[in-house]
């Protein structure tokens, strides 16, 4: 009888020990998994912030380089061209015969130099959008559209609710401007559209930039899956990642394509912003 009682006790004890072990195993698996995922998440976040910083540096370098080229064009080439124009004007005065071959050649050279000066000025402005720094996004986008409409048969409309809003940080404004440029250029190059609509909307939380066209449209998801995304679209996503923005591509039922960039608002701080003015040499740290 005592043996049976001992057997029952031993059986209970062994079963209990086995159950405790099973509970321990389950708890261990769950805790281990949780910790490993947390560690991986932390590592991913470090990697992400590192690549974001790298990207930010790369884009800053690009902007600095643009400014440097614009500055060199203005200071060196621009000055030289102005001097050439002056010299040609003087030469024009020296040549006495009004209908001589030399005078017509000088006149032709003067026209060429003037055109070159205009081109250099346009390139400098394209490289660094001075209007953006001085008057803000709406004005810069309007100016960009005007320039495009002069050169194309396109109809471009622009609606903005940003006029009454506070100016955003220079980096945010520049990013939005560059994204708008890229989206519009993409529409012109690839969509075969005749009409482009740009909308800029700023509310208390987000800035929305919408670029729609009536062209052939495209499937962004399919492009990503097939690894056919070009540098343009990748560049947009990279630029947005730095300012915590996102972009969505929609295929409207009426056709064409619609890109919506959403960026958190970053109103300009009290501190004086870094100038984008091209004709001051930027400090390279």
């Amino acid at each position: 009888m005592q043996n049976i009682e001992e057997l029952k006790f031993a059986l209970l004890l062994a079963t209990l020990a086995m159950l405790i072990m099973a509970f321990f195993v389950i708890t261990f698996v769950m805790l281990y998994q949780k910790r490993k995922f947390e560690a991986e998440k932390a590592l991913n976040s470090i990697e992400k912030s590192h690549s974001k910083r790298l990207l930010d540096t790369a884009l800053n370098s690009e902007e600095t380089e643009r400014r440097r080229i614009a500055q060199d064009l203005h200071d060196d080439i621009g000055t030289m061209l102005s001097l050439t124009k002056l010299s040609l004007n003087q030469l024009n005065k020296i040549v006495l015969e009004p209908d001589s071959k030399e005078r017509s050649l000088i006149h032709k050279s003067q026209t060429l130099v003037e055109e070159t000066i205009l081109h250099v000025r346009r390139i400098t402005r394209d490289l660094v959008p001075t209007t953006l720094e001085r008057f803000g996004l709406s004005e810069a986008i309007s100016e960009f559209i005007n320039k495009l409409e002069d050169n194309n048969q396109l109809q471009i409309t622009f609606h903005s609710t940003a006029d009454d809003s506070m100016r955003q940080q220079p980096k945010v404004e520049l990013t939005i401007y560059r994204i708008m440029q890229e989206l519009v250029n993409n529409a012109i190059k690839h969509s075969k559209c005749s009409n482009i609509e740009i909308e800029l909307e700023i509310n208390s939380e987000f800035i929305f930039l919408k670029v729609a066209d009536n062209g052939i449209g495209f499937n962004a998801t399919q492009l990503k899956e097939d690894n056919l995304v070009g540098l343009g679209l990748l560049g947009i996503e990279s630029r947005l990642a730095i300012i915590n923005g996102i972009v969505r591509y929609v295929s409207p039922p009426a056709g064409g394509s619609l890109a919506i960039a959403q960026i958190p608002v970053a109103p300009i701080s009290e501190k004086k912003p870094e100038p984008l003015y091209p004709f001051k040499r930027a400090k390279i740290s």
């Binding site: 059986l11 086995m18 159950l19 389950i26």
Partner: peptide, 14 residues
Amino acid sequence: FLLYYSSFVFIAPV
């Protein structure tokens, strides 16, 4: 199943 078979492993032969 782990808890069930752990509870049963010593009882089963008995």
